[in-house]
Design a protein around this nucleic acid. Structure first.
Lengths: 350, 350
DNA sequence: CTGATATGGGAAACCGGTGTCATTTGCAAG
DNA sequence: CTTGCAAATGACACCGGTTTCCCATATCAG
């Protein structure tokens, strides 16, 4: 009874392509052909093999494939440390695209500013022979990174606030238009003295958002004195500091557009500690629609950009060659952001 | 001129172990020994080979290694969707531990509740032949997942609020003690009518936190009428709803302990929309110390648990066998949480 | 009926490492 | 002067796929 040569094998280790070949009575190459739908083969043979695969629950070994193919099925996500929700939404979008493919997502936070950052990324790409990487803002704006990817032969997609160059390597939201819409909203409410809390210098997103703001003001014939523009760093604390400086102005702005929600939350925080009521005495608009925007009081009017969809699109761009998509599923490179109206905007007091 | 067999090879493709062996005049096995610090070998030989490796910039192919070894160098992070900051901090902690090792982190969000969840995770583990996985709460509490890992021979570590069983597979914070401390803090301020917003039923963390709360109350001889306990779901919205129900009580509680910050933020939001001032008329304590706790007004007193350190510890537990650690670096299984006092607690009004 | 052309499928090399085992050498012990 | 043993290294099979090339058979034109 217990004499069978290898009865427990099935339960223990995973079947290999050789097992399948033996069970189906063919060579492993033929099994390979079935798996990869390559070459021509008899319908009966295919069905036979597919049946065996099904009943054994065979799954090809990704490592062996990667070795034989010379590339693997790993998509990297390289990011600095913007807000957590953004990164997670991006991960979600990418993973949605990767679902039911052979790809997996590998994450790699890096430290912009660190002199080893480029080497760090290079070794990440080279060592793992990544199939492709998604570069998140703000490091996606670093051209040296894109060149690095080209250099090591790794596909890449950059996420951003505007199409920098090659749309093949770029997925962007049109922040400028969204900011214009947001600013027009403030103007339509009657605001004229509107403060801006900008993003850090050198960031494309910061520049684009500021441009949109200034455009909308100019369009309405409103002058923007330099004093109404405060520098921010996209952080909560910098939002507080910038708000303080704007609050010191005489007269105070009746509305503030902060280039992201973190800073907008800082404005709200600063306003509360000064006893300035929002939105009665001060209207605020943020950008990003992070969870915090809906959780503070009053909830912040803000701009939402479709992060998940953009992540999905980025991933599809990367693996598009590997798993051809129908023309109607062609991934767009530019996404539109929308204004989310909540409770932090009202007409100015007087 | 163009007759050379393979002159451009050097610039193009990466060197393999064979190239190194040839250049150093040894066999590839010897090179392998240098890379893995295994076996005994002559000091001169080692230096020679190391020199060659250095100047060629050779990096071993992880896929080939994975294939030969039968396991790869990927650590999986499996999580449901608790708050983003927690997941990201956990990723950070894990990656700190993985830095300078051969391991990479692969993320996999899953959908608890979905009937395919287990199969989903199984195929994730099996296909990629993961070296190990970190299970985040709340799905870390699902025993079937742990059994699954055992079954497919994948190492795992569960993160949690208390040591469930085997400390080898568990990294936990001692939530109970922290909650007791937080509750005592409220009591010390003079609060007697303290409401609790619990976590969802069936969650160990929810149970543990509730236990701590009840213990501290009992310890102080304070009765806890059933009406002062509101069910929450760890979400902002459920916090609002639970707060509303507590606010309807006559008399109203003078303080509320919410089992996480999301719900605490909901309490604050609900209080503001009712015109209840915090902390004058209502004290609030949350749990987790997520960014939102410091960004609302007033900033929330809350309990901080060392997520990053726990993530690091979890990863080290997994790869401990692979990269032996010094005894003094032994990773603890239990971490202590601390009360972070901010502005949402004050003595009761009267 | 012969030779040309497709088509299905197999043998063996290969991808880049690691494991096992054998071999060579140096040196201390018998 | 063996013998014995450990250190240093190499030869070779193997991990589980893919690719190249080649053969067998079937089909078809002449």
């Amino acid at each position: 009874m217990k004499g069978e040569p290898k009865p427990r094998m099935a339960a223990a280790s995973k079947p290999t392509i050789n097992d399948i070949a033996r069970l189906a009575g063919v060579s492993k190459k033929t099994v390979s052909r079935v798996i990869n739908r390559s070459g021509s083969l008899n319908e009966d043979t295919r069905e036979k093999i597919e049946a065996v695969i099904r009943e054994t629950g065979y799954v090809p070994n990704p490592q062996a494939r990667a070795l034989a193919l010379g590339r693997n099925f790993l998509i990297g996500l390289v990011h600095d440390n913007p807000n957590a929700q953004m990164i997670l939404n991006m991960q979600q979008g990418i993973l949605e695209a990767l679902r039911d493919t052979d790809f997996e997502l590998v994450v790699r936070p890096v430290d912009r500013g660190s002199p080893e950052m480029l080497d760090d990324v290079r070794s990440f790409l080279v060592r793992q022979r990544l199939y492709g990487v998604v570069l998140l803002p703000p490091i996606s704006e670093i051209d040296a990174l894109a060149r690095l990817c080209d250099e090591v032969g790794c596909k890449y997609v950059r996420m951003g606030s505007s199409v920098l160059d090659d749309p093949d390597h770029m997925v962007a939201s049109n922040d400028r238009d969204a900011v214009i819409e947001a600013t027009r909203h403030l103007i339509a409410q009657g605001h004229r003295r509107i403060g801006l809390i900008s993003g850090p210098h050198g960031f494309n997103s910061a520049q684009v958002r500021r441009d949109g703001f200034e455009f909308a003001l100019a369009e309405a014939g409103i002058k923007l004195p330099r004093s109404l523009v405060a520098d921010g760093q996209y952080t909560f604390e910098s939002g507080i500091a910038a708000a303080e400086s704007l609050f010191d102005l005489q007269p105070r702005p009746t509305a503030i557009f902060a280039c992201n929600d973190e800073m907008a939350a800082g404005v709200l925080y600063a306003a509360r500690s000064r006893g300035i009521s929002v939105p009665e005495e001060l209207s605020i608009i943020g950008f990003d629609d992070t969870p915090i925007a809906a959780r503070v009081w009053p909830p912040l009017t803000t701009v939402r950009w479709p992060i998940v969809a953009m992540g999905r699109s980025a991933a599809l761009k990367l693996i598009g060659d590997a798993t051809p998509v129908a023309p109607e599923d062609q991934e767009p490179s530019t996404f539109v952001s929308t204004l989310v109206r909540r409770g932090s905007v009202a007409p100015p007091a007087k």
